[in-house]
Design a protein around this nucleic acid. Structure first.
Length: 659
RNA sequence: GCCAUCUUAGCUCAGAGGUAGAGCAACGGUUUCGUAAACCGUAGGUCCCGGGUUCAAAUCCCGGAGAUGGCUCCA
């Protein structure tokens, strides 16, 4: 690392200052002055406040990655003259740079070439240099280079404009950067993708190249290994290998649950049902298809129409055709109206409108509140083809949906109770590290400020009362009310939003829902939307990846598999199988003529929690030789009673165990 | 929807303008075996679909479907 020494007059550089103060270490990447990140090679005005930013610092990684993106853009323009640069920031996992390349796209093999040139630029160890210029100079500079996107962006900038050079290459950039290109220790280009200029789909499509950079080759390798591990745990891969789920092109983005997957799915729902009876929910079943009038009342039409499946009948279509054929003067608008009329029904994308109808079917008393309605009804949403993904983004799914009708005063205690429930559930699935996010009123909203004040305060108070740390997402609430979101990290540290609870002032209003209060007057209830899993499909997908396909004993499709050493013990093994099944244990068997080693290998691939080996010895002593999946070792001879005890004890979620 | 990539046996993948390959799985047989793969054999294909170019297309071109990675990070 040979630092350049800028010959600028006046202030000394952060590098010089740190060196004088004896704070400069070999892993210093940049510096911080107050809150501001600065280059090592640029002059700073107040030396007393300069602090080094070292490699282990998260900010250091961003600086390195941002510099890597410049190096990449340089390499791209060397290899593909005429390509224009746009934006190239560091991201959480690496960096990207968006290019406008007239000849078209970059291919995967281009990435290798670009990477090779990048490595050369890094080896050349070219110093980065920051310059402050006027808007006019900047405009002239980038116009001269025909960098039209940069020129466009300059017009949006105010105040000081900075550019960064390394060698001949220059970019409009806020910085900061590392000392020189040699200070990017490990870099790798990962993928190409299309991206719109400024992220707006009305703008031209640019070519985005993704890459990542780390402070060492070891760190980079660890990241690549983690990517590989994520690939191995991918629920689409495991879902097929373990015969849990399937997809077919005749039902795009709609999962099929194979028998084994259905077992897990149903067990998830049974588990919640058990909790619901404890937490005072009443389960309901509501229709799938409604007259569109419902969705007009709820506001889903026209707002949500593009995500809904329309439904109709032949009768309705024939009536429309009839009317059209009888009139010759149909113009476009009336045809449009006719079409809408013929599509009389809609498939529900949410349960709430139906639940509002159910609430309104009886006169409600304050004594009935809070009324907690749960529904595992199937929902259909039309997701655009590019956004669907495995189980995590599908077109048909069910939610562990629930709606609580209550008074404003009851919100806080309802939230408190829900927080208990959510935490208990996540703990049972081994999700630690739950983060709570409170989203407050957006600019465009429904309901009085007073109601918002009370609702937001109720959310905060309830969370505080539980002693839970939380973050506020200012203005991120939905238009109809504030909400709490629950985010978890899975076993690979990836974040997921699962549960939520949302206050809704809107729907009770639209459906004119009321209850009779103590005062014998009609009052408007508040509605809470809440879910713990979110979509059951998505939750299962996350869970599969979290446990790597190895479901806990209480969820596993099979709890134990019997493996015979030879045919000679098949009779005894059959008897054991029957005994276990009679005791309610989910037991299966492998009586094939494979050798024991192969049977164990196959059984492990299927992630059976327990393997029970049965040979001559076990048949004589009336037991099995038990092997645990999670410990991956032989636990020795186990009697049948002991086996049943083990499975019964472990076959229950943590929070429902007696001891 | 848009950009890129992909689609060959149930699965994982190789191949390639001259007519289809492997491993695993399946099926049949031999073996009866003690803690992560016994052996032999059989069968399995509209090379995603439709059109075009060609003497010849699974391969090249066009269109479509489905899938995969992106389309939030802001000079």
């Amino acid at each position: 690392m040979v630092p350049p020494s800028p010959e600028q007059p006046g202030n000394r550089t952060a590098l010089q200052i740190l060196k004088e103060q004896g704070k400069l270490t070999s892993d210093t990447v940049a510096a911080r002055v107050g809150d501001e990140l600065v280059d090592l090679h640029s002059p700073v005005s107040n030396p007393a406040m300069v602090v080094p930013v070292v490699k282990s610092d998260l900010d250091a990684l961003r600086v390195i990655r941002h510099s890597a993106s410049h190096i990449m853009a340089d390499a791209v323009q060397r290899l593909f003259p005429g390509t224009k640069v746009t934006f190239g920031p560091a991201t959480d996992k690496g960096f990207f740079y968006d290019f406008d390349r007239p000849e078209g796209q970059f291919s995967e093999s281009d990435l290798e070439r670009i990477e090779a040139v990048m490595k050369q630029i890094i080896a050349d160890n070219i110093p980065f240099r920051r310059e402050v210029i006027s808007k006019e100079e900047a405009r002239k500079l980038f116009e001269g280079m025909n960098e039209t996107y940069k020129v466009e962006h300059i017009e949006r900038l105010e105040g000081e404009i900075t550019i960064y050079r390394h060698g001949d290459w220059v970019d409009l950039c806020a910085g900061p950067h590392v000392l020189s290109t040699g200070c990017v220790p490990a870099v790798k280009l990962t993928s190409v993708a299309g991206a719109y200029w400024r992220g707006d789909e009305r703008n031209p499509m640019l070519q985005r190249i993704y890459g990542t950079a780390f402070t060492s080759d070891e760190e980079l390798q660890r990241y690549l290994d983690a990517l590989q591990e994520a690939k191995n745990r991918d629920h689409r891969k495991l879902g097929r290998e373990l015969d849990l789920i399937g997809f077919h092109k005749l039902a795009p983005a709609s999962p099929f649950f194979m028998p084994r997957g259905t077992q897990v799915y149903n067990r998830l729902i049974e588990y919640l049902r058990a909790l619901y009876s404890e937490y005072g929910y009443l389960e309901v079943i509501s229709p799938q298809i409604y007259d569109n009038e419902l969705f007009r009342i709820s506001g889903h039409l026209p707002e949500y129409a593009e995500n809904m499946f329309a439904a109709t009948t032949v009768e309705s279509l024939e009536e429309s055709a009839d009317r059209i054929s009888k009139r010759s003067d149909f113009d476009a608008p009336s045809l449009q109206r006719e079409l809408e009329q013929s599509l009389r029904y809609g498939v529900k994308p949410m349960n709430c409108p139906g639940h509002c109808l159910m609430y309104g079917m009886n006169r409600r008393s304050y004594r009935e509140l809070p009324m907690r309605m749960a529904d595992f009804g199937r929902l259909h949403r039309f997701e655009r083809s590019g956004v669907t993904q495995g189980l995590t983004r599908v077109r048909t799914f069910s939610q562990d949906d629930g709606h609580i009708f209550c008074t404003l005063d009851q919100i806080q205690s309802e939230i408190a109770s829900f927080l208990d429930l959510v935490n208990r559930v996540y703990k049972d699935f081994g999700f630690s590290d739950v983060r709570v996010m409170i989203a407050t009123r957006p600019d465009e909203r429904l309901g009085s400020d007073e109601a918002w004040d009370r609702a937001e305060e109720a959310l905060k108070q309830a969370v505080k009362a539980k002693g839970l740390p939380f973050e506020i997402a200012e203005g991120e609430g939905v238009f109809y009310g504030p909400k709490i979101e629950f985010h978890i990290n899975d076993a690979l540290g990836r974040p997921w939003q699962l549960g939520t609870i949302q206050v809704d002032f809107n729907l009770p209003e639209r459906f004119d829902l009321t209850y009779v209060g103590e005062d014998n007057q009609h009052h408007r209830p508040v509605m809470l939307h809440r879910a713990i899993f979110g979509s059951v499909e998505r939750f299962l997908g996350v869970l599969i990846e979290h446990v790597g396909g190895a479901f806990p004993l209480w969820l596993a499709p099979e709890q134990v598999v019997l493996l015979t050493v030879s045919e000679k013990v098949n009779d005894y093994a059959r008897e054991v199988l029957l005994q276990l099944q009679l005791q309610g244990i989910r037991a299966v068997s492998d009586f094939s003529s494979d050798k024991l080693g192969a049977k164990i290998r196959n059984a492990r691939a299927m992630r059976y929690p327990y393997l029970a080996v049965i040979g001559q010895k076990e048949a004589e002593q009336k037991g099995v030789s038990l092997r645990s999946r999670d410990q991956n070792k032989d636990l020795g001879f186990t009697s049948l009673n002991a086996l049943v005890d083990i499975i019964r004890r472990e076959g229950v979620p943590f929070s429902m165990r007696n001891n």
